[in-house]
């Protein structure tokens, strides 16, 4: 049986939390003062190094590095970790069987493959470090600044427009879902769990989303949207925070080279 209220409520909560993270990009913190271009390039480099690490040292250092920068950017540890802990958890589930395939060492009645277990741990730490890096970028950079930076970095316009549209329509999706859930709850005496109810809710939701997306498109056109989303150009500037951050990232690259090469 499907509890549509709980499922939809959980989705709504997750998206709201994700969207609310944008508020941190307005705080006067360390990473917020760095140009989006520097953060994007640095994040890509650091993620690449993390996923290509064969030892625990670099991913763990990167995790520590990201947490320190998040704290310096006035993001509380609990808020920061709550954003990305779930993805490494999923990755553990995906690779966990490797720890037991051809297991030879007994532990609590289970045969564990030591190499496999090490890989599971390494994979999880890599994912954690990579997701922490991306989260830091998203927490401390306004979405419009990311789009503007990507445009200046000559990313394909189609890709940027798709990103912008997807991001925008998430709000429509969210508002509709919240309104429908409220309307449903206001007329319910007890929670019903049925596939029929869930499919009717989903169908109604999709048709509403369709008509709402038309309305949003009209509103975008009303404000000058002509097929490509423009944002105010934010001049690229080297701030002292940017120079220090770049130096730290270069140091991280050297650390990776020392531990891996």
């Amino acid at each position: 049986m499907i509890d549509i209220d709980k499922t939809a409520g959980d989705i709504t909560k997750a998206i709201r939390n994700f969207m609310a993270a944008e508020e941190f990009s307005y705080i006067n913190g360390y990473m917020q003062g760095i140009a989006a271009e520097i953060k994007i390039v640095a994040s890509v480099v650091l993620i690449f190094l993390a996923i290509s690490s064969s030892s625990f040292v670099f991913p763990l250092l990167l995790l520590l590095f990201s947490i320190t920068l998040a704290l310096a950017s006035r993001i509380s540890l609990a808020t920061y970790i709550s954003r990305f802990y779930i993805i490494p958890l999923f990755s553990v589930i995906v690779v966990l069987p490797l720890a037991f395939i051809n297991g030879d060492t007994g532990m609590y009645g289970l045969l564990i493959n030591a190499e496999g277990a090490k890989y599971v741990a390494l994979f999880t730490v890599r994912v954690m470090a990579a997701v922490a890096t991306v989260s830091l970028l998203l927490f401390t950079t306004r979405f419009s600044a990311i789009l503007s930076a990507l445009r200046r970095m000559k990313f394909p316009m189609t890709l940027i427009t798709i990103m912008a549209m997807v991001y925008r329509y998430l709000f429509t999706f969210l508002t509709q879902l919240v309104n429908m859930l409220l309307g449903r709850r206001s007329r319910m005496v007890e929670r019903r769990k049925s596939i029929k109810g869930a499919s009717a809710f989903a169908g109604n939701f999709l048709s509403r989303i369709l008509s709402k997306s038309d309305a949003v498109y009209l509103a975008m056109r009303a404000r000058g949207f002509d097929g490509s989303v423009k944002t105010f150009d934010r001049k690229f500037e080297w701030s002292s925070a940017g120079i220090i951050y770049t130096t730290m990232v270069i140091a991280m690259v050297f650390l990776w080279a020392i531990t891996e090469l």
């Binding site: 419009s144 709000f171 009209l218 944002t231």
Partner: peptide, 20 residues
């Protein structure tokens, strides 16, 4: 609700002026 489709109010305010 149809008019406010950005992540923050500030981005919504910037949207029109940036487009034109």
């Amino acid at each position: 609700d149809d008019m406010l489709f950005n992540a923050t109010v500030m981005e919504d305010l910037e949207f029109g002026p940036a487009q034109i």
